[in-house]
């Protein structure tokens, strides 16, 4: 009988794509570039994470200048209606695959601003969030731990927020419009 050990079984297209995707995941989880959207006090935890105390770069992470270049959208702190609109715009500009990490309790439930008329309480109603780092504010170890969690999720193919955004786009859009309202005037002062 002919041995099948050394004759490679031809892979289907889906399987090849999966292989490539896994290889890509290795690169992606080892080179996570951040776009920091820092509107709240949690941002103060990032300098120690980047500099010699915790040295984010040893994990291959680093800050980037624009959403086009970045992999992670790092939302730190509360989001007012004005900033939320800009956050969504920024998120939609990022290249895929893209991940969202939310720092602090504000994006989870509004934190200390939960009863403000201008602040939204749950970020994941508007864009999908992959990792939450809870705490008000979370300390730097927790922030680093959040990033390591994200890497783990990417490795196990659980960081699928960006896919969910495509699949449930109408739901997200409806939420966005409910909160922000339609814009009639298009100029620098509205929208």
């Amino acid at each position: 009988m002919k041995s099948t050990k050394f004759t490679p079984v031809p892979l289907t297209k889906a399987e090849t794509d999966k292989k490539w995707w896994e290889i890509g995941d290795f690169f992606r989880r080892n080179s996570l570039w951040l776009l920091m959207y820092c509107t709240g006090c949690c941002a103060i935890e990032l300098p120690p994470a980047m500099t010699s105390a915790y040295d984010m770069e040893r994990l291959g992470m680093g800050p980037m200048a624009t959403p086009r270049q970045a992999d992670i959208l790092l939302v730190s702190g509360y989001l007012s209606l004005k900033t939320l609109r800009r956050l969504i715009y920024t998120y939609e500009q990022m290249s895929e695959p893209r991940y969202v990490v939310a720092l602090g309790s504000c994006p989870i439930n509004g934190g200390i601003y939960h009863d403000s008329h201008a602040v939204i309480n749950q970020l994941d109603q508007y864009i999908p969030v992959d990792v939450y780092v809870a705490g008000c504010m979370p300390n730097t170890e927790a922030v680093m731990n959040g990033f390591v969690d994200l890497m783990d999720q990417i490795k196990h193919k659980r960081a699928n927020g960006w896919k969910k955004y495509h699949e449930n786009y109408s739901w997200y859009k409806a939420n966005q419009i409910t909160s922000l309202g339609e814009v009639d005037v298009h100029d620098e002062f509205h929208e």
């Binding site: 890509g24 690169f27 992606r28 080179s31 086009r68 992999d71 290249s95 695959p97």
Partner: peptide, 9 residues
């Protein structure tokens, strides 16, 4: 390689 694997604009 990560950049090459991403879907840009």
């Amino acid at each position: 390689f990560k950049l090459l694997s991403k879907r840009g604009i």
